[in-house]
């Protein structure tokens, strides 16, 4: 059997809305990926520790709290510290367009905003993951 892509799905920050994260987790599962789901209110440190221990190829975070400009670069720099910045780092959530530019400059490979078809996220991951 072909080796499945491993993805960590996590929610940093303090908002308690995980519907989006669950929908994407389910879509990735149905696309044949192994999704490690870690749930709500994760610190960047917890997310990176989980990503490293699980040796995932993709770190996908969902954030609706508005703290993305702080938390996402923090996750990226912790990944670098761990020597794990080869992992594909993607984000989803309510993120204004002007912030997306900033996030992409700071190591987020793609940002999926509300209304994005799950198939788009699935194909982005499949095309960009480093095997």
């Amino acid at each position: 059997m072909e080796r499945p892509i491993r993805v960590l799905v996590a929610k940093p920050g303090l908002d308690g809305h995980d519907r989006g994260a669950k929908v994407i987790a389910r879509a990735l599962r149905d696309a044949g990926m192994e999704v490690i789901y870690t749930g709500l209110r994760q610190t960047p440190e917890q997310i990176v520790a989980a990503a490293v221990q699980e040796d995932v190829e993709v770190v996908a975070v969902s954030i609706l709290s508005g703290a993305h400009a702080t938390l996402l670069p923090r996750i990226k720099s912790l990944l670098k510290e761990e020597g794990a910045d080869d992992m594909l780092f993607v984000a989803g959530g309510v993120i204004p367009d002007e912030d997306i530019v900033f996030l992409k400059e700071n190591g987020v490979a793609a940002v999926f905003t509300p209304g994005t078809p799950t198939t788009e996220a699935v194909s982005f991951i499949k095309e960009n993951v480093k095997k």
Partner: peptide, 16 residues
């Protein structure tokens, strides 16, 4: 699909 949701970490996050 060959995919899976591995959700056991949810209960172990603090120890991560």
């Amino acid at each position: 699909s060959g995919g899976s949701i591995l959700g056991d970490r949810i209960r172990m996050n603090e120890l991560s």
